[in-house]
């Protein structure tokens, strides 16, 4: 590992001023669960790290019936997984968090750090996108709100400016007659995801008709992929097995996966079909009961 200068920010304001000062050579350090490996492998060698992990002001889970859920960017994965509030109102997040790396990583790693690392196989992004998450980005100059769907631009790349810090993840209140399901597929149980998907289904109350749908996949494109055609096709339809299967096939056709040691591109497409089908079914069943 190369040497670097280290600053520990004591407030968000200080962090913003540090990052605006060092934006060309610095990196923000949160839990570092990806960053430290990258530093060790010399894949990145910033000359300065601005440590924000200690900022209590960005560590919270708050809910309001009107405005929904707000999670501070430095909330750990484990805190989200174990939060009774999230388990009750956004259970998919709690379930999804169980798939994030290991307990040790979830204990130290933060949700904001995870999103900013923009790993195409990251667990949280698909579910958060399916839930309609928005991000609050702050800098010394001010703040802006962006949809998580618009956040990622390429492998390990986001729209975040070098002087910005991700401060908060926001989600609307749980929609009625809606369920969100997360499913992953890997060779070993806790292995690298070959494909994962999060599906949100809203049904017309008391019917089998799909009112709204969102299908998000990871590991099949450089960024979390939000299907357009497949979700659109479900809307207004009775969710029969045939319709669901058709949507899953359509979702697969929208992906552009690559081959690696874990799976070929062709196989990933096949798995998308199965996983999306299963996730729609499960979400559909739950939505009917919701």
């Amino acid at each position: 590992m190369k040497d670097f200068e280290y600053f520990s920010a004591s407030s968000l304001q200080e962090a913003c001023s540090l990052i605006s000062q060092y934006k060309d050579v610095g990196k923000v350090l949160a839990g570092g669960q990806s960053l430290i490996t990258l530093l060790r492998q010399k894949l990145i060698s910033p000359t300065c790290l601005i440590d924000i992990k200690g900022l209590k002001e960005l560590d919270y889970i708050e809910f309001d019936k009107k405005s929904g859920l707000r999670i501070g960017a430095l909330t750990t994965h484990r805190a989200i997984e174990k939060s009774p509030l999230i388990q009750e109102k956004y259970n998919v997040l709690s379930e999804m968090e169980k798939s994030v790396a290991s307990v040790q990583t979830r204990n130290w790693g933060t949700i904001g750090g995870n999103l900013c690392s923009a790993d195409p196989i990251g667990d949280p992004a698909p579910s958060l996108i399916a839930l309609g998450a928005k991000l609050k980005l702050v800098s010394a100059k001010g703040e802006r709100i962006v949809a998580l769907e618009e956040f990622f631009t390429d492998y390990f790349t986001t729209i975040i400016e070098p002087d910005e810090i991700l401060a908060e993840i926001q989600m609307p209140p749980p929609a009625p007659n809606t369920a969100v399901e997360y499913m992953k597929f890997s060779t070993i149980e806790a292995g690298i995801k070959i494909v994962s998907t999060s599906v949100a289904i809203t049904v017309e109350a008391g019917s089998d008709v799909c009112k709204d749908a969102k299908i998000v996949m990871s590991a099949v494109a450089p960024i979390p992929l939000v299907t357009k055609k497949a979700a659109e096709m479900l809307k207004g339809k009775k969710l029969t097995d045939d319709v669901i299967e058709e949507a899953a096939k359509m979702a697969a056709s929208e992906t552009d996966p690559t081959s690696d040691v874990h799976a070929s591109a062709e196989y990933r497409k096949e798995i998308v079909k199965v996983l999306v089908k299963r996730a729609i079914k499960k979400a559909f069943e739950k939505a009917k009961k919701a």
Binding site: T187, I188, E189, A190, G191, I192, D260, V261, H262
Partner: peptide, 28 residues
């Protein structure tokens, strides 16, 4: 039987780490 193989491409090992070379863990 199910998981383990050193993969290579033109003599370069493609999975030389415990993330990409998957071995059974407690839940398996």
């Amino acid at each position: 039987a199910l998981f383990e193989e050193i993969m290579d491409d033109e003599g370069r090992v493609l999975n030389p780490n415990l993330v990409d070379y998957e071995v059974p863990r407690a839940f398996d």
